[in-house]
């Protein structure tokens, strides 16, 4: 009969999930782009807190490339942070 009856509920559900995933992912990727060159604080495991200028993330969100990392033992000019070491990060917009 109607076109919509050709679309199974499963297809509709799948499309809704895909659209949701697009919105969520796009917003997150844009936030990472907005973070470039900003000072960011990182709360890491073992109560380690550091700040750095954010550079970029890989797309699997496993590594953050940062500059001017202020560590408890001094400044490391260029660094990679493992996302698995990080509990949370924050910056101002």
């Amino acid at each position: 009969s109607s076109l919509s009856s050709l679309v199974t509920p499963n297809t509709a559900e799948l499309e809704e999930e895909q659209q949701g995933r697009v919105l969520l992912r796009e917003r997150y990727l844009r936030s990472l782009l907005a973070m470039a060159r900003q000072p960011v604080s990182f709360a890491m495991y073992e109560k380690v807190n550091v700040t750095a200028l954010f550079g970029a993330s890989d797309i699997d969100i496993l590594n953050f490339q940062v500059s001017e990392l202020q560590t408890p033992l001094g400044v490391q000019r260029e660094a990679l942070l493992r996302c698995s070491d990080i509990i949370a990060y924050s910056f101002e917009l």
Partner: peptide, 19 residues
């Protein structure tokens, strides 16, 4: 509520579906 008893409060902008 996050690891090591850290807590954070705010308005949810998004949840990255990858991470």
């Amino acid at each position: 509520l996050a690891a090591e008893k850290n807590t954070y409060q705010g308005w949810v902008l998004t949840v990255d579906p990858v991470s």
